[in-house]
Amino acid sequence: MKLPLYLRVLLLLTLVGCAWLFWEDTADSPETASTPAIARAVDAPSAPVAPGPPDEVEGVDLFPAQTWTPPPPPTPVDTSPPQPPPLPFSVSAQWRYENQPKIVVLRGNGRQYTLCHRCAVPGHIEPGKMLDAQYRLDKLTDTAVVLTFMPLKHASTLRLDKH
């Protein structure tokens, strides 16, 4: 089949145009990518405009590393109520006058505390009074001293029969 001359010329021009576009559109050409820009007339100066984000696109990891090992178990949360510190008091002395309630001397926190029911000892502490800023004397019996740690409202018993 024989092509007419004008079709041969058009085919040749098409091939030359494609070759020219191929050579112009290479990766190492220093030309910047053309982006459409819309120009508008500005009558008054506007406030400075902050530069936009860079045109770099962060890489997205489509296939992140995966493992079959199970994650570690969560650490257990301690839900138990707070515990008071151990009693800082020890029995230093105890005695009883004729047919009278027992008098107990406790030593702790660098001081001595005299515990009794209605006694004449100066500076004595009766049940219901505070020993120091954190402990209250609740009960004084012949066999035990009951102290309450006030920040936690926790009662502790100090046995007297062992001393």
Rank of each mutant, 00 (worst) to 15 (best):
M1P: 02
L3R: 08
Y6G: 01
R8E: 09
L10T: 11
L10F: 11
L11N: 08
L12G: 15
C18M: 13
A19M: 09
A19F: 12
L21P: 00
E24H: 10
D25M: 06
S29H: 07
P30V: 01
A33P: 05
A33C: 04
T35N: 08
P36D: 13
P36A: 14
A37T: 14
R40Q: 05
A41P: 01
A41V: 07
D43L: 13
S46N: 06
S46F: 05
A47C: 09
V49R: 13
V49G: 02
P53M: 07
P54T: 15
P54E: 13
D55N: 13
E56C: 10
V57F: 13
E58G: 12
G59L: 14
G59M: 11
F63K: 12
P64C: 12
A65S: 12
Q66Y: 05
T67V: 14
T67P: 06
W68E: 14
T69S: 02
P70M: 07
P72K: 01
P74F: 06
V77Y: 03
T79W: 09
S80L: 14
P81I: 09
P82W: 02
P82V: 09
P86R: 10
P86N: 06
S90Q: 09
E98D: 09
E98W: 09
E98S: 11
N99F: 08
P101L: 12
K102A: 06
R107K: 08
G108K: 07
N109C: 10
N109S: 13
R111A: 15
R111P: 01
Y113P: 00
Y113C: 01
Y113W: 06
T114N: 07
T114V: 15
L115P: 07
L115H: 07
L115T: 08
C116V: 02
H117I: 12
R118P: 01
C119I: 02
P122A: 05
I125V: 15
E126Q: 15
G128E: 06
K129S: 12
L131T: 07
D132A: 00
R136D: 04
A144I: 03
V145T: 02
V145H: 00
M150N: 14
K153A: 10
A155P: 00
A155S: 13
T157W: 01
L158S: 09
D161W: 04
K162M: 10
H163S: 14
